[in-house]
């Protein structure tokens, strides 16, 4: 026979079904969230892709020259300082020697004079005075020595401080550069790609050939000049490189770079052309 539950089901199947369906979905969603929260997403930790190395090696002579100049200047300063120190030491020594010599001379003259006139008592007194003066001179020299040592120390400290400051400055510059680095990197990659697309190598190209081209650009990305700075030895190869750059220009994307970045990296740019994928 029928019971009440069946009756209810036939009449009101919908409310029960709706409740069942909604609670089922809530359950599924809750389970999803729960498992998601509990599972450690180690496998999904994205690895920072290594920067793709550009085929064109960017040797920027401006930057390198600046670095070289800086290094040379520092070396020169160091040398000058060393020379000055030595000079100073020599001078003080010479002064001391001459002073000593003069004093001795004087003493001898006086002694001779007095010897000529005076008795042994006077001579003894004279010698005593001489001794005193010598002691004074000795003290003077010690004092000078000490002063010099102090000077040396303060100078060393100053040098250390300067080095520390230099290091901090470089660190800050590096941090700045890491953001700039990406910009430069992408612009370099772009130039490289454009040039590569436009480079048709002559049949005479061989592996191991290498031509360096220096190009000058405007901030608008236009090419001013391109000249071979290091020939590969093959005229056709050099010309193909030159043609590639002329065909790829202008590099309009450089307009978006900040001007200081452009000046530092792209105003003068050296491109190395090197076929690496040839069979022979």
């Amino acid at each position: 026979m029928y019971n009440n539950l069946d009756n209810l089901v036939i009449y009101n199947g919908y409310p029960v079904s709706i409740i069942a369906a909604v609670s089922f979905h809530c359950l599924v969603l809750a389970a999803l969230i729960y498992f998601q929260a509990n599972s450690r997403m180690d496998t999904l930790n994205l690895v920072q892709p290594t920067v793709v190395k550009a085929l064109l090696i960017d040797v920027n002579p401006q930057v390198r020259n600046q670095q070289n100049l800086e290094r040379q200047r520092l070396e020169r300063l160091q040398q000058q300082r060393l020379a000055r120190e030595q000079e100073l030491r020599r001078q003080t020594e010479a002064e001391l020697e001459t002073a000593q010599a003069a004093a001795e001379e004087r003493a001898r003259q006086q002694a001779q004079e007095r010897q000529r006139q005076l008795d042994a008592d006077a001579l003894r007194r004279q010698q005593q005075a001489e001794n005193e003066r010598q002691a004074r001179l000795e003290a003077e020299r010690a004092r000078q020595e000490e002063e010099r040592a102090q000077d040396e120390q303060t100078r060393l400290r100053q040098i250390n401080q300067a080095r520390e400051q230099e290091r901090q400055r470089q660190q800050a510059a590096q941090e700045l550069a890491s953001t700039e680095f990406e910009l430069v990197q992408s612009a370099t990659a772009l130039i490289q790609q454009l040039v590569q697309e436009n480079w048709s190598r002559p049949p005479s190209a061989r592996n191991g050939m290498r031509a360096i081209l220096q190009i000058r650009m405007l901030p608008t990305g236009e090419l001013v000049t391109a000249s071979i700075t290091e020939s590969s030895g093959d005229v056709a190869f050099d010309r193909s490189a030159e043609n590639a750059v002329y065909r790829a220009a202008p590099f309009r994307e450089l307009q978006t770079l900040p001007i200081n970045l452009f000046n530092r990296n792209f105003r003068i740019l050296s491109l190395i052309f090197q076929p690496e994928d040839l069979l022979f």
């Binding site: 029928y2 069946d6 089901v9 199947g13 029960v16 079904s17 069942a20 369906a21 979905h25």
Partner: peptide, 28 residues
């Protein structure tokens, strides 16, 4: 899709109730 899923589950539950009641009714 969520709405479709919810509604289809409502239908699934409701049909299940109706069909099982009908089957039982036949037997009785």
């Amino acid at each position: 899709l969520l709405l479709l899923s919810v509604v289809s589950w409502v239908m699934i539950a409701q049909r299940w109730l109706v069909l099982s009641a009908a089957k039982k009714g036949v037997k009785n």
